[in-house]
Computed example of a mutant assay.
Amino acid sequence: MTNLISVERLKRRLENGQNNTVVVDVRFKLDDEDAGRKMYLEGHLPGAVYLDLNRDLSGKVEKHGGTHPLPDFPTFIKKLENIGINHETTVVIYDEGNDMFAARLWWLLEAIGHERVYILEGGFKQWVEDGNEITSDIPKLEPKKFHAQFNEDKIVDMKTVREKLETNAVLIDSRAENRYLGDFEPFYSKAGHIPGAKNFPWQAVLTEDGRWLKGEELQEHFSSLDKEEEVIVSCGSGVSACVNILALKAAGFKQVRLYPGSFSDWISYDENEIEIGEGEL
């Protein structure tokens, strides 16, 4: 998978003084929105800066749009400039492990055309387990100019999802199976899934020891899907879906788009139907 970087490779890159690299810590907990920032302040990779899922990687929550709507992109790009990122910058993102929040930032950067973006394999946990240094020092940042624009073709909205489900497009739900089936729902007022969605839990693109699937394993995982068809990826609020998007692209799928609002946006429209298990509610 070309968008991964190993701990050893990142370590060499930093030791060799390759200064046009920005390391971003995106650790976060959905049930404790301040936990990620606290973890960063307690200790992070040398030179790393912190971006928060709610404050930096999402926009304002409104009636529609889901619980983690996309950020205002001019504001997001300005934040990238302030931490020293432009088109020439290599960006390395890390999470606690191989978690969903790193993929969210990877997707946002891809959506504005930034290609030099890598996720640290194994994340902060692997960095520490390998005996590498952490620090509580906050780096001094040198702002840069970043001329970028959001690519609207990367996403679909709720109405488009409705329309696409009448065509050959495939809708993926990236949540755990028990949430997809409606057996368990910890975050929203309604349970189940968008009618017609296929369940590909995002954790399933990782091995039992938490490593990303690669090569034949990844091809086998998505073998039931047609690479010629459009694939729309959703989850609860457009975060864990980004893990599947990264995996699908690594597996050679070209027509992959995100439904940013996902299930939390879908259920905000009273007229939208929901499926529980295999039946329609």
Rank of each mutant, 00 (worst) to 15 (best):
E228D: 15
N54E: 12
P143H: 12
I267T: 11
L171N: 14
D95S: 12
S6M: 00
W266G: 14
A241K: 02
K227P: 13
V117Y: 05
K159V: 12
A247N: 11
I5P: 10
D265L: 13
K63Q: 11
V233N: 02
V91W: 11
R12C: 09
N98A: 06
S224T: 00
L109Y: 13
V256S: 04
G210A: 13
Q203E: 08
I85G: 11
E229C: 10
D31T: 04
N20M: 09
N272Q: 10
F76D: 00
E88K: 15
I172C: 03
D157V: 02
I245Y: 02
P201R: 04
Q255Y: 04
G36N: 12
H114M: 12
A247K: 08
G182R: 02
A111L: 09
T67V: 14
A176E: 14
V128K: 13
V170S: 07
K254Q: 07
E142G: 01
R9M: 00
D226V: 00
K60Y: 00
R116C: 13
L53W: 05
E177V: 09
G279T: 05
D226H: 12
E280Y: 12
D183F: 09
P71L: 06
W106L: 11
D153E: 14
N178C: 13
G215W: 10
P186L: 01
L120C: 03
